[in-house]
Structures are given as C-alpha cells and as structure tokens.
C-alpha cells in the first residue's frame, strides 16, 4: 500500500493518501509500523486502533456528528478509507479566525463533544490538531484511534482537559473565549452531564505536578 503513492500527509501514527474512487475524493489512512515500538504493541495498536476508529466513525456519522464517513474499514491491514474533508487543522488557523466566528466554531465543537459523551464515546486525543475547519468554518472531528466506549465521567473530562491544554499551549490568548463557548454548546446538548464533567475537568488540571492550588484546596477543607 505504501509503495508508489506519496502521502498527502504524515501524521503521528498514520500516513494519509489521497485517492479517487468513481470520481469521488477519498483518503486512505494507513497506520504505519513504528521502529521505536515493541513489535507486540505495534501489532496490537495497528489492529485495535483501526478497528475502534472505524466503528466509532460509523456510529458518530449516524448521530450527525461532523466526522468523515468511512467507506472501507480493514483492521487486518491497518487501513481505513474515508471521505476526504477539505480544510485546515484548527491548530494552524485558530489565530486567523475572528473572535465572533471562533465563538460559533467552539460552540459547535462543544455540542459535538456532548453528543459523543451522551453516547458513551470518548475521543481520547481531542486536540486542536484533530479538528478540521472547512472554508465555510464547519468543524470536523477526526482521528479516533485512542477513542473508546465508557460510562466513566473521567474519560469525558479528559477529552475536555486535553482540548483546553492544547488551547493553552498553542493559542493561549484564545483559550478563554474558546472554552466559554465550548461549554455553552456542551451544556445545551448535555445539561445533565455538564456540571459533573466540568467539576472533573477542574480536578484533573489539579493533578498535574507541582500545582500549588492543589495544596490550597486541601487546606480549604479543614478551614470549612
């Protein structure tokens, strides 16, 4: 598969090839073998992550979340063929989107994340690099290799923690505006999950190393 064709994009764990089938554009996502990874893990991950991703893409597509619909899912060959979404990574264009439009984008991402979580699906790597923005500013969520099914609020909160961390690192000045609107969208779709998830997101941030607020929080308990 990898021979001859030149990848359109080389991601962290897969190569993306642009292909045409019956006049329609598709991408082939091929999970590559890693020289630094133990062969046992290499085999398990390339199979399992492809399988998970395919399954979740189908489910989310049917639930009206903006994801590329898959055409062929072939875990044995670490391959998924899916619709080609034309756009840019949010990590690359976030600084050029005016605040008003960015607010709408963030809200829509919040809504889609809430739909995932209501359906017990977590993304596992929700970063700005895994959100594609089309030229009409429609956000698509991609790369579900670390995704999974869980009823644990922790997994949902980690999704949002990762998104916020990615914002703070790559676009610190846009972070607050983005997250405020994200939560608006999230709350609108999942009012019951909202409080619990938001509280957990805060707790997760405190778990980082050398967080001084953590110790303050512990003291507050005794003061009350």
């Amino acid at each position: 598969m990898a021979t001859g064709l030149k990848p359109l994009y080389m991601g962290a764990e897969a190569h993306i090839y642009l292909i045409e089938i019956l006049g329609e554009k598709f991408v082939a996502k091929y999970r590559i073998s890693k020289p630094y990874r133990h062969p046992v893990y290499d085999r398990i991950f390339r199979y399992q992550r492809t399988k998970t991703e395919g399954r979740i893409l189908v489910e989310l597509y049917l639930k009206n979340v903006n994801v590329p619909p898959p055409l062929i899912i072939d875990p044995a060959n670490s391959l998924i063929i899916m619709k080609y979404i034309i756009g840019d990574k949010l990590s690359e264009v976030i600084d050029s989107i005016p605040n008003q439009q960015l607010s709408a984008v963030a809200k829509r991402i919040g809504e889609m994340t809430a739909v995932m979580h209501i359906n017990r699906i977590y993304h596992g790597d929700l970063s700005l690099g895994n959100i594609i923005i089309t030229n009409t500013l429609k956000p698509y969520i991609i790369d579900f290799g670390l995704a999974g099914y869980s009823s644990d609020v922790e997994e949902y909160a980690i999704d949002i923690h990762l998104l916020r961390r990615s914002l703070n690192a790559l676009a610190p000045e846009k972070s607050e505006l983005f997250m405020d609107n994200f939560w608006k969208g999230y709350r609108g779709v999942a009012p019951l999950l909202y409080e619990e998830v938001k509280e957990r997101v805060y707790e997760i941030a405190l778990r980082g190393r050398y967080v001084s607020e953590r110790i303050k929080k512990r003291f507050e308990k005794y003061v009350e």
């Binding site: 991601g11 962290a12 764990e13 630094y36 893990y41 990590s91 970063s127 700005l128 690099g129 990615s166």
Partner: peptide, 14 residues
Amino acid sequence: NMLVEVAERALVLT
C-alpha cells in the same frame, strides 16, 4: 513506548 508515542503526537501537532 508511551513517552515516545506522546512525544511524537506533540511533535506532529507543533
């Protein structure tokens, strides 16, 4: 393996 995997993800992201 875990550390190198996340480092690679960060490298591609940035």
